[in-house]
């Protein structure tokens, strides 16, 4: 994954709660075998409404999205993260995220920054005409008005993001532990390795 440190720029003040992954990228866009080109379908139903924040010229190519509680709920489709990346979004700020989306965002180098609702409300106001900065190393969101909102992030995820680590490569370094587990597992639950399907008569 590409290393991430500081994200600075305009933030789209969406503010909506419970933005589900069907809203982020509707199912008819999922027929692709590629990770590219999904930006065209991102937030399709919201963008279809006149006066939506994605249409505001100032927010073209904005790297940050600000949303409400439970962002990314619903389907596990990683296409949601790919679609956001494809439209230039590399960070989302919200009071809470669904577990699966938070994982998918991380795997794609998208920062999912959790802040309390009152701080998100403040950022929604500021974002209308000012840029926002997210500093991952120092775990803080700042504004031109001296706001400083600290956020928490899993230390393992932080390290992966800052260093752009390949998670599969990291896991493969634990090969001996995986192999040892497989031997233990064969001893305690041998039936789990006998997966030759018996065809039904």
């Amino acid at each position: 994954m590409k290393a991430v440190s500081t994200i600075e720029g305009r933030a789209i003040p969406l503010g909506l709660k419970n933005v589900d992954t069907d809203v982020i990228i509707p199912a008819h866009w999922l027929k692709t075998v590629s990770r590219e080109g999904l930006g065209a379908g991102a937030f399709e139903t919201i963008r279809a409404a006149p006066g939506n924040p994605f249409d505001v010229e100032d927010f073209a190519n904005a790297p940050i999205l600000i949303a409400g509680d439970n962002f990314g709920c619903g389907s596990s489709r990683e296409h949601a993260a790919w679609a956001m990346l494809d439209m230039g979004l590399t960070a989302v700020i919200a009071p809470s995220f669904s577990d699966i989306f938070a994982g998918n965002a991380f795997k794609n180098g998208i920062l999912a920054v959790e802040l309390p609702q009152d701080q998100v409300d403040r950022l929604l106001e500021i974002a209308k005409d000012q840029p926002i900065t997210i500093d991952l190393e120092n775990q803080v969101v700042t504004t031109p008005f001296q706001d400083r909102f600290e956020f928490q992030i899993d230390p393992f995820r932080k390290r992966c993001l800052l260093e752009g680590l390949d998670e599969i490569g990291l896991t493969l370094a634990s090969e001996s532990a995986i192999a040892a587990h497989e031997i233990m597992r064969r001893g305690t639950t041998p039936w789990l390795d006998k997966t030759n399907r018996r065809r039904s008569a």
Binding site: E78, I100, K107, E167, I168, T171, I178
Partner: peptide, 20 residues
């Protein structure tokens, strides 16, 4: 539990997942 495509790749390659 459900996983994203990067995790699908991770499981295919390693038969494990990094989880808390």
């Amino acid at each position: 539990f459900g996983i994203g495509t990067s995790e699908v790749e991770h499981v295919l390659a390693t038969q494990t997942l990094q989880l808390r």
